[in-house]
């Protein structure tokens, strides 16, 4: 590092009042009428170590567009089209009464892995809350992408017993007009969600 090197600013909790700023109305809807791709809904609940719902979690979603391109300068692939009507980011505060969160988005395309091959379609989730001094990072994979999941280097790096915590299952939701996937987020215990050191 250069002589101007300095240390990372430490993380602190978002606390109980982040909804003043960080998850406004509509921020969990990533689609507009112009967005390209198959609409899906991703929903779930956030639970603590006693499996009580976390009533004040901030869930942030980041994903590629339907072609697998990220809306970001570091994804400079010119052979993959960029959907200008899709930012790829959303955020949602969990429900105070139930711990539920949801996103309306599109099914992402596959994204290359730097060691070669393609990653299975996935979403990146960042979770923060009162009582969390650091963010936790996880990924959502889709149960109906079995072949792609089996070849995904990140998913395969997760111990077998914990891999299922990263798979969103297709569920029936009569309130939803689009395919709906369920992805719960759990802290502690044998079925704790796998979290990554990104």
């Amino acid at each position: 590092m250069s002589s101007t090197a300095r240390g990372q600013t430490p993380s602190q909790t978002v606390g109980p009042y982040f909804t003043m700023r960080l998850s406004g109305e509509g921020e969990n809807v990533l689609t507009t009428p112009e967005t390209v791709g198959e609409r899906i809904r991703v929903e779930g609940r956030v639970f603590d170590g006693d499996r009580r719902h976390i009533e004040d979690a901030l869930v942030e979603l980041w994903q590629a567009d339907s072609s697998g391109r990220y809306h970001h300068p570091a994804d400079d692939r010119t052979d993959v089209p960029l959907d200008p009507a899709f930012s790829g980011f959303g955020r949602c505060a969990s429900d105070f009464q139930t711990g539920a969160y949801s996103f309306l988005t599109i099914r992402p395309g596959p994204v290359p892995h730097p060691n070669g091959g393609m990653q299975a379609p996935h979403l990146s989730l960042t979770i923060q809350a009162r009582g969390m001094l650091n963010p936790t990072f996880t990924r959502v994979y889709f149960a109906d992408e079995e072949a792609a999941n089996a070849a995904d280097p990140v998913l395969q790096s997760v111990p077998l017993a914990r891999r299922s915590t990263l798979i969103a299952e297709r569920v029936e939701n009569t309130d939803s007009s689009v395919p709906t996937y369920r992805f719960d987020i759990r802290y502690q215990g044998d079925d704790e969600t796998a979290f990554f050191d990104v």
Partner: peptide, 22 residues
Amino acid sequence: VKRSPSHDLISIVQTLTETTGP
């Protein structure tokens, strides 16, 4: 106490998913 992960974090090779953002 009840809101911290109890397993170690899993190391990851950074991909476009991690090196891009909003």
